[in-house]
Amino acid sequence: MSVFIIRRLIQASLVVFLMSLIVFFGVNVVGDPVYMLISPDADQAEIQATIARLGLDRPIHEQYLLFLDGAWRGDLGNSFVFGEPALRLILHHMPATLELAFTALAMAIVIGIPLGLYAGLYPDQAVSKGIMAGSILGFSLPTFWVGLMFIMLFAVVLGWLPSTGRGDTATFLGIESSLFTLDGLSHILLPALNLALLKISLAIRLTRAGVREAMGQDYVKFARAKGISTKRIILVHVMKNIMIPVVTVMGLEFGALVAFSVVTESIFAWPGMGKLLIDAILQLDRPIVVAYLMIIVLFFVVINLLVDIVYSILDPRVRLQDQGA
């Protein structure tokens, strides 16, 4: 067991190291941020001073070593535009993104699983066909387009909900979140639903497939033969078996939600780290881009690592297979 975890940890750190290499060298080939940040009428001395201040005059491998050394201490450089540490800026914007992603995940589970359950139990009903058609649309429609339509319908035409920004926040149990105020809730509803749409479709499909498979299994037939009510068969026996894969996949999708929030945040002007990234790309603010990419890679690696470990505890075959390979 511990061998398995150590192997996975080594693999994960290798991935992070490789990504740091790719990201750093990649970003340093793009453009010359010096000319993005210094006004055209600055004199040569000013330019030189800025270059020296940002460490852009050193050889690139030295810059990388400096970067690694800094990253080790949690210092990923200062933002060219804001002049603040990049990591602190990102961490400052992270709660808004996490709040959005968590709300979207909750929506996906609360909306998607019941719909999928219904479609799986009554596959030939018109309602089920409607649900499945809806889930195909959910997969096909580009997120940004749905977001635009939400803004147009609910904010411009109907005027029910605000279309931009994060609302008031309140602190509850030590967590500051806009989920605890009415204004905050009205602000988060549209972006969270927009972000959740793809995952709702996914939850519908997973649950439906699981239910259809489970309903034909011997244990369901046996439970029927014992005279257990249909309600109990579905809610206890079937749900128990299909929830494990569904919840696992949805958990894995949390990383995707954080990554996709880049799009939603840009549309709804949600002040999260995704919007920060897009602004940084447009302004060639390299430290922010590098820091964001490193954090998102770390995020994914940690999520995958946790899922791997939990899986190997639940299912010993995974870890035996790994040792054989």
Partner: peptide
């Protein structure tokens, strides 16, 4: 293990 959209976005962030 990374979503395609994220890979594309990372590359664009790097390449321009």
């Amino acid at each position: 293990s990374f979503p395609a959209a994220l890979v594309a976005l990372m590359l664009i962030a790097i390449l321009g």
